[in-house]
């Protein structure tokens, strides 16, 4: 595939295989992730897109019996994120993640956003105040919550909770932000707000987003990858994937003949 105006690489999967115990869930994936761009992963459920996403912050290390093969190179320092010598915690400090269902911690709004900073040992009130405000603004939530920062996060609406989770991830200035179907539990209005936010965020951070909603992929992403049965079928600029897919299987999925 030919990418003309090649932006800088942020990460690159090289011949990535992944196993849940004996079951092979990812099969030889090669794919670039471009810096300060939004890349969408689409495909029918069970195609491995979430599994692939969760490899970028080594979430699979939390559970026994999971195994990676191959590499995910991370730039500019060209580290292999999957190398056994690399500490998964260090990876997670550089790669943020937003989950399918909003999962605010049982703490105040303020403490939710400050969480990652405290994990890094930051306890200076002034620094925290500043960063929390900045992150909440980045998550487009500041105006709604600035007067009730000490309320429990669980009092917020679903859409607000999801934006809080985005702010929480932003507070620590991640280099790559992973979104795992971030709007699947939200109503259309909250979904639109998140999509707009993703659009805004790519100025600051590289984004990889899993979605089962093709319109969403078309709306928010610069690049799209179509996955099927653990394989990367096609990767390219979003317009090209949607307007003139090269692979028959991609075309079938996009035109709604399967999936």
């Amino acid at each position: 595939m030919q990418i003309h105006d090649n932006p800088a690489l942020k990460a690159e999967a090289r011949n990535l295989n992944f196993y849940y115990g004996e079951a092979k869930a990812l099969k030889g994936i090669n794919m670039p992730i471009y810096d300060k761009k939004v890349t969408a992963l689409i495909g029918p459920s069970g195609c491995g897109k979430s599994t692939y996403l969760r490899s970028f912050n080594r979430m699979h290390d939390l559970y026994p019996g999971n195994r990676y093969e191959g590499e995910i190179r991370f730039f500019p320092d060209n580290t292999n994120l999957l190398s056994p010598e690399v500490d998964p915690i260090e990876v997670r400090m550089r790669v943020g993640m937003v989950f399918q269902k909003p999962n605010p911690f049982p703490k105040s709004i303020y403490e939710n956003v400050a969480y990652g900073l405290r994990v890094r040992g930051e306890n200076n009130k002034r620094v925290l105040d500043d960063k929390v405000e900045h992150a909440l603004k980045g998550g487009a939530l500041w105006d709604e919550v600035k007067d009730r920062l000490n309320e429990l996060a669980s009092n917020l609406s679903g859409g607000q909770q999801q934006r809080l989770c985005i702010a929480r991830a932003l507070a620590t200035d991640p280099e790559l932000l992973l979104f795992d179907e971030p709007t699947s539990a939200l109503d259309p209005i909250a979904t639109a707000a998140i999509e707009e936010l993703v659009h805004e965020l790519k100025k600051r951070v590289t984004i990889l987003i899993v979605t089962h909603n093709m319109q969403q992929a078309a709306r928010v992403s610069d690049y799209t990858a179509y996955m099927f049965l653990g394989e990367m079928i096609e990767f390219g600029k979003t317009d090209e994937i949607f307007l003139k897919p090269k692979d028959k299987r991609t075309e079938d999925y996009i035109t709604g003949r399967m999936g």
């Binding site: 500490d87 915690i89 260090e90 400090m93 994990v119 890094r120 040992g121 620094v127 500043d130 960063k131 200035d173």
Partner: peptide
């Protein structure tokens, strides 16, 4: 306030 260096992050992780 500048982001933590890799060494600082590793120190935090080691402590944890």
């Amino acid at each position: 306030m500048q982001p933590l260096t890799t060494e600082q992050i590793r120190a935090v992780i080691a402590r944890g």
